[in-house]
């Protein structure tokens, strides 16, 4: 029972075909070659597969591809603009907020949503918002530092413009 649908991914319309068990994660990775979204556990535990749906973080491994139709999806590939890294990406690099890097795309997307709703989060607010995203290398302190750094960068660029 395959059906063809269109998704809005990083501002572009992309056609995919879906079977009943097609997740958004498999559509992104296997059909659209957007492999920046990571397959961690596949069962909703780790949040490595996080994408933004209409701005809010979702686990793409538990989201059926068809339910993403009509929503604006942002994956890690859509975060940099015009060849320039987003401040959150830049801050993760500068703080070296990863070891193996597998959780990083999901971390960055969740952090983007956090900073959108809270431009100056405390350590506790960061820990609470990011609690679903697991880093098996244990780089949490650097991730927290990177989010603070990104917040500073974004606030100062908001002042300039």
């Amino acid at each position: 029972m395959a059906t063809e649908i269109e998704l809005d991914i990083n501002g572009k319309r992309r056609a995919i075909h879906t079977e009943p068990d097609t997740t958004l994660l498999s559509a992104l990775r296997d059909q659209l070659d957007l492999t920046g979204t990571k397959y961690g556990c596949g069962e909703g535990q780790c949040a490595a597969c996080t994408v933004l749906m209409d701005g809010s973080p979702r686990r793409s491994c538990l989201t059926r591809a068809t339910t993403a139709a009509g929503k604006k999806i942002v994956t890690i590939e859509g975060v940099a603009q015009n060849g320039r890294l987003h401040p959150v990406q830049q801050a993760f690099l500068e703080e070296q907020a990863f070891q193996c890097g597998y959780c990083t795309p999901g971390m960055i997307l969740t952090a983007l949503a956090l900073l959108k709703s809270n431009p100056d989060p405390s350590d506790d607010e960061i820990a609470q918002f990011m609690e679903g995203n697991i880093c098996r290398c244990g780089t949490y302190p650097r991730i927290v530092a990177a989010i603070h750094r990104a917040a500073r960068m974004m606030r100062s660029s908001a002042h300039e413009s």
Partner: peptide
């Protein structure tokens, strides 16, 4: 309940 991703969906 759960975490941000769970509460959103």
């Amino acid at each position: 309940i759960g975490d941000v991703q769970v509460r959103n969906k």
